[in-house]
Simulated assay, not measured.
Amino acid sequence: MNPWELLDKTEIPNDGGQLELLQRGDEFSIRLSGNRGELMNSRLHNSEEALAELGCAHLKSTVDAQVLVGGLGMGFTLAAALKVVSQSAKITVAELIPAVVEWNRGALGERAGRPLLDERVLIHTGDVIDLFSKNKSIFNAVLLDVDNGPEGLTHSANDHLYSLNRLKAIYNSLRTEGMLAIWSAAPDDTFLRSLKKVGFKVTTQTVRARVGKGSRHTIFLAKKLN
């Protein structure tokens, strides 16, 4: 088997360590440096696609839908969302780490079909928190794939993204019948109760990393009813 080749590394904001991009043949991996674990692999993206398919399922015929994707990753969630929504939709992708955007514009982008080239896509290089509005309902769907879900690994500030105050901000930013979909490495009953406390109607789905096999991941589906 071919060895992994380190293509690039970048600093994670707020002293989160370093992120590495590696390649082996046509396979890519994004990892935390220092043998702290793999975050993403280009062969394991079924649950990332399911995040978009489930979170945007109600938007197939919605004209001028507005979708926010928190976390670009390897682009699979974005690519799946683009397949669901109409041609009049706009999808804003918030990615905290500039290098991840550049990786997706480079060789890595081929794996997901280069979704950043779609004219419906807008890039926000910064914190997804900055895009939530306290006073205006903007989005038909918000898809969050940040770290491992409610219990973050790479960026301690991500804990605040899933706090009650932030969840309320997301709730207010959603239009009526809007959907908040969150990718998580595992179930989390405490977080489930937080979503309900804010006012969401919540269900969960268990999805495998690959179709029919691999690790089991959890998708939280939180709907705003009014």
Rank of each mutant, 00 (worst) to 15 (best):
G199P: 02
I30T: 09
G199W: 00
D8W: 10
S173Q: 03
A181T: 09
A209Q: 11
K168P: 00
T92F: 09
R105T: 06
R36N: 05
N2I: 09
A181R: 00
L164Y: 12
G73S: 02
T92R: 07
G214C: 03
K201H: 07
S42Q: 04
A157N: 13
E151R: 15
G214P: 06
V69Q: 03
D64I: 04
A81V: 00
I129V: 12
A89P: 12
G16T: 06
E5Y: 04
R193I: 10
A222W: 03
N104H: 08
M179N: 03
H217E: 02
D145L: 05
N148L: 10
N35E: 13
A209T: 09
E53A: 06
S156H: 14
F200N: 01
P3D: 08
K223Q: 15
L167N: 02
V202M: 02
V84N: 02
K90D: 09
V63I: 11
L22I: 03
V211R: 14
R105A: 07
N148A: 12
K224H: 03
I91P: 05
V128T: 09
L161E: 03
S215M: 04
A222V: 07
N140Y: 07
E102Q: 15
R208Y: 10
A57T: 02
E5I: 15
R193K: 12
